[in-house]
């Protein structure tokens, strides 16, 4: 019954997938400054922090959509801040992103949304692309909704369809911005199980922005916490460890869900 396990893709001495050095992010003025962080190959890293503290902004810097105000970011050794467009384009092929609002292409069915990257970057026959797209939609629990339009499904379903689209090319790095917002607990747990299975089987690196404590403790290997008030990265470590033993009060309160008045 047990199959010969896949060749362990996760490196033993863990290599760095994404490296941030002295990164400051923001718009006219910095929101978070001086981030030093190594995201390891094959890890599930959660990024948390109060709403509006800059998580989505950080994600757009990590995905090369905007430049940080200062510092350097490299993905698989390629500098994505100063490189030319060609280099950035080839790095982009190595990751999939689910944006906070889903950003599905309206007017296309879910199947067509997931197929789009396959059409652009592979030469698979039509019916194979359909089946690959169906499999990805099935993984996020939307197998029965492949032919619906984004406007015909709920917000939580749109987010999951966007995750399926991020998975379309089986990239080694996947960024998810608040994937479980709007999901019921069962669906959210299914999503966690899928993320964990992909991570174990293939060594896929997941960088997940989330406030969902249940997910963070269930599948998070490390947790990085941003603080908008102090404008910096205030904690990095195993979630349970930080919850019980962080010397930072705000981090403990966040991970223990303690309201402000009780501090």
């Amino acid at each position: 019954m047990p199959a010969p396990s896949a060749p362990a893709p996760r490196p033993t001495a863990r290599e760095t997938a994404i490296s941030l050095r002295g990164v400051s992010i923001g718009y006219d003025r910095p929101i978070i400054e001086g981030i030093d962080l190594d995201i390891l190959k094959g890890e599930i890293l959660f990024i948390g922090g109060g709403s509006g503290c800059g998580k989505t902004t950080l994600l757009s810097c990590l995905t090369a959509l905007r430049k940080p105000l200062a510092g350097s970011i490299t993905i698989d050794g390629v500098d994505i801040v100063d490189s030319d467009d060609d280099a950035i384009r080839s790095v982009r092929r190595r990751f999939g992103v689910m944006y906070q609002l889903g950003a599905l292409f309206g007017g296309k069915t879910l199947l067509e949304n997931v197929r789009l990257p396959l059409e652009e970057f592979t030469d698979l026959p039509d019916d194979v692309m359909d089946d690959v797209a169906r499999a990805k939609l099935g993984l996020v629990g939307l197998g029965a909704h492949a032919l619906k339009q984004p406007s015909e499904i709920s917000g939580g379903m749109q987010k999951r369809a966007a995750i399926a689209r991020a998975l379309a090319l089986d990239p080694p790095i996947i960024f998810l911005d608040e994937p479980s917002a709007g999901l019921d607990p069962v669906t959210s747990a299914d999503l966690d199980a899928m993320i964990e299975a992909l991570n174990r089987m293939l060594g896929t690196t997941f960088v997940i922005i989330s406030h969902e404590l249940a997910s963070i403790f269930a599948i998070g290997q490390r947790f990085a916490m941003l603080d908008g008030a102090r404008r910096k990265l205030v904690a990095l470590g195993a979630p349970a460890e930080l919850r019980d033993h962080s010397d930072d009060e705000w981090v403990r309160r966040f991970l223990n869900r303690v309201p402000t008045q009780e501090s």
Partner: peptide, 9 residues
């Protein structure tokens, strides 16, 4: 993964 993918197909 396979069980998830097959659901609802």
């Amino acid at each position: 993964l396979i069980d998830l993918a097959l659901r609802g197909q």
